[in-house]
């Protein structure tokens, strides 16, 4: 009888403890795969890259610790100045073209019938991989490509040139290709924002006699701020790390004239096998992107609060 009582007590306490333990452990189990993935494939490589940036390493022999020498070397390398300048051009141009054009297209598409059709048309280039898109543009822009053939056909042969080997034309045409490919995504994001804006303030403004531009400037644009923040942040981060399109179209050439920081990092690491030096560029690039993101997002949040 006594044994049965004890057993009963244990029987009653056990599910409660188990339940409590399960409640405590269950969320961590859900998180575990993601945390492990991020840890193994993002945090560990990032920390290791930062460590490697203080070494001289060719990938064959053990890394040699050289302190800040790689970072001093970056400043001395003339190619770094070209890369930094090109990267800033990409950042500014990305804000001017894919983002602004995306916003304009979203406003336009939001007002017209057959919205689904236009959304698909403008979004379609994004469905093509960056590498494939770059190959297509490379063919079109080659000296014997369709762009020059068209210019000659319409009597503008004087404008025909080797687009990909003449600076700054090579950077300009790559920016056009990038705009073609990425504008659609920005348009979709802006469309989502536009469609979530309440109609009341717009109707009130109309009743007060505001014209379309005034409504856009003073009502639509401020209400779009959350989505604009996301689009700008993504666009700037993507423009800092743009690589595949440039690598396929020009490999950063000719004579390294179209390299951005991401291309220089790849080239130093995997073509010249200066892995320590490449890691220092990667670290610097990461610091720039993180700094931008923190400063930009903080200022936005501060304004909102």
């Amino acid at each position: 009888m006594n044994t049965e009582t004890e057993t009963a007590v244990i029987y009653r306490q056990s599910p409660a403890k188990l339940h409590s333990f399960r409640n405590w452990v269950e969320p961590y189990l859900y998180l575990f795969p993601a945390v492990l993935f991020v840890g193994v494939f993002l945090l560990y490589p990032a920390v290791y890259t930062f460590y490697i940036s203080f070494t001289k390493w060719d990938g064959l022999n053990p890394p040699q610790f050289i302190g800040l020498q790689n970072y001093f070397q970056i400043v001395k390398e003339p190619v770094f100045q070209t890369s930094l300048r090109n990267t800033l051009i990409w950042v500014v141009a990305t804000l001017l073209f894919p983002v602004m054009l995306g916003l304009m297209l979203a406003v336009f598409v939001n007002r017209i019938p057959l919205q689904g059709f236009y959304k698909s048309v403008f979004y379609l280039p994004y469905a093509i991989s960056a590498t494939s898109g770059a190959v297509i543009w490379g063919f079109m822009l080659s000296p014997v490509g369709v762009v020059n053939a068209f210019l000659r056909e319409v009597g503008l042969g004087g404008l025909a040139r080797s687009w990909l080997i003449i600076p700054p034309w090579n950077t300009i045409v790559m920016l056009i290709a990038f705009t073609w490919q990425t504008t659609g995504t920005n348009m979709i994001l802006f469309l989502v924002g536009l469609q979530s804006i309440p109609t009341d303030p717009i109707e009130a403004a109309k009743l007060d006699g505001a014209n379309a531009f005034q409504i856009f400037r003073h009502i639509t644009l401020p209400l779009l701020k959350p989505i604009t923040t996301v689009v700008i942040t993504l666009a700037v981060v993507n423009s800092f790390k743009v690589f595949d399109l440039i690598w396929v179209m020009t490999q950063g050439g000719p004579y390294r004239s179209s390299e951005t920081l991401a291309v220089t990092m790849y080239r130093e690491s995997f073509v010249q096998f200066r892995l320590g030096f490449g890691a220092s560029i990667a670290s610097l690039l990461s610091i720039i992107v993180i700094l931008f993101s923190v400063v930009y997002l903080r200022s936005i949040f501060r304004q909102e609060s």
Binding site: G138, F139, S142, P143, V144, S162, W163, L164, I165
Partner: peptide
């Protein structure tokens, strides 16, 4: 010199 031969296309 923009016309390729043997590398890429």
């Amino acid at each position: 010199p923009g016309i390729s031969f043997g590398t890429g296309d």
